[in-house]
């Protein structure tokens, strides 16, 4: 920086720059207050665009829910309300620790601030771990988005297997009206290992929700064939759904994964930012005078919480 470029009117030249304002105050701001206000304004403008971006997904949700309520009603059964609620609580608590961390930074409580940021980071970890458990479960059952949505195919395959097994042991399984007696009896005879036979109480609820007269026999068979496969028809039938239902529910899982994945990405970005301000706080860079980064990362983290507050009832509590 050369001296000749500066006009005499300028308040601080290169010589005095390091003396008349602190290191964290940028040259183009007159006061820390002005800098903080400008930074916050920029952050809120950014959060506005974030809301608009998620708005697109909320719009897709609204239109699809209005036109295909059945898809949402069938699909949401496979989401665990308990996991969703726990994740809501985890995010709310981490939001609280973040707000407290901002307070600690404002009050020069350095070690408290670092500790609270670490807790907030752990909250983010907890959220992502639970989300991973949920996602893994969905993919295992063929309930992924797009090409990973193989649930109807699995269900159909098991239906067909059950059907062949049914015709082998009970030639007239379809002709005979499904009674409480024929279902378990057929299942018993087809079961290769007597020791692993399902108790009749387990078979009964599946017969109860079966929509078609032929279904109870098929569902009971499938429940037993599932012993060898560990997953599949038993799983869907236990939720009272047929292959047709699973075809219908496809859209729900696309929307579920679209919304939660974008939200999850924001959680990861938020965690990275928290780690960044945590390290800066540990180095003692923040004080009562300068804590804008903690404040802004806090705002971002609260937005992530805010979006989840709407996602949870819309996806899990239909």
């Amino acid at each position: 920086m050369s001296q000749v470029e500066l006009s005499p009117a300028q308040a601080h030249d290169a010589e005095n720059a390091h003396h008349d304002h602190p290191e964290w105050l940028a040259h183009h701001f007159d006061t820390p207050d002005q800098q903080n206000t400008s930074a916050k304004m920029g952050m809120w403008a950014f959060l506005g665009t974030e809301i608009l971006m998620f708005g697109g997904l909320f719009c897709a949700y609204a239109i699809w829910r209005a036109n295909h309520y059945d898809a949402f009603w069938i699909g949401h059964v496979y989401l665990s309300t308990a996991w969703g609620a726990i994740n809501t609580v985890v995010l709310l608590i981490s939001s609280f620790t973040m707000a407290w961390a901002v307070r600690a930074a404002q009050l020069n409580q350095r070690s408290l601030c670092v500790g609270l940021l670490a807790l907030t980071f752990l909250g983010g970890c907890g959220f992502m771990v639970i989300k991973t458990i949920e996602y893994t479960g969905k993919f295992e059952h063929g309930l992924g988005p797009g090409i990973w949505y193989t649930a109807p195919a699995i269900s159909k395959q098991l239906d067909a297997m059950a059907e062949t097994a049914g015709t082998a042991s009970h030639a007239d399984a379809e002709a005979a009206p499904a009674t409480e007696a024929s279902g378990p009896a057929a299942a018993e005879s087809a079961n290769p290992v007597p020791g692993t036979s399902l108790p009749s109480s387990a078979a009964a609820p599946m017969g109860m929700v079966a929509p078609a007269p032929v279904a109870p026999v098929g569902h009971d068979m499938a429940a037993h064939s599932a012993h060898g496969h560990g997953e599949g028809h038993n799983y869907y039938a236990a939720h009272g759904h047929t292959t047709e239902d699973l075809v219908t529910a496809r859209t729900f899982f696309s929307i579920y994964f679209g919304m939660t994945a974008l939200h999850g990405l924001h959680v990861l970005v938020g965690m990275a930012l928290i780690l960044w301000v945590l390290l800066r706080a540990r180095r003692g860079e923040f004080s009562a005078e300068f804590n804008t980064p903690v404040d802004l990362v806090g705002l971002y983290w609260h937005l992530v919480d805010l979006i989840w507050i709407f996602l949870f009832p819309l996806l899990y509590l239909i």
């Binding site: 239906d159 059907e163 062949t164 015709t167 109860m208 929509p211 032929v214 109870p216 098929g218």
Partner: peptide, 29 residues
Amino acid sequence: DHEAAPSTPAAPAKESHESGDGAAAPHAG
């Protein structure tokens, strides 16, 4: 009991679908 379930509008579609499968299965087996 399971009499309640077929009252849903989707049931006829399911029934035709399942009986379609049922018709196909004996040919396969």
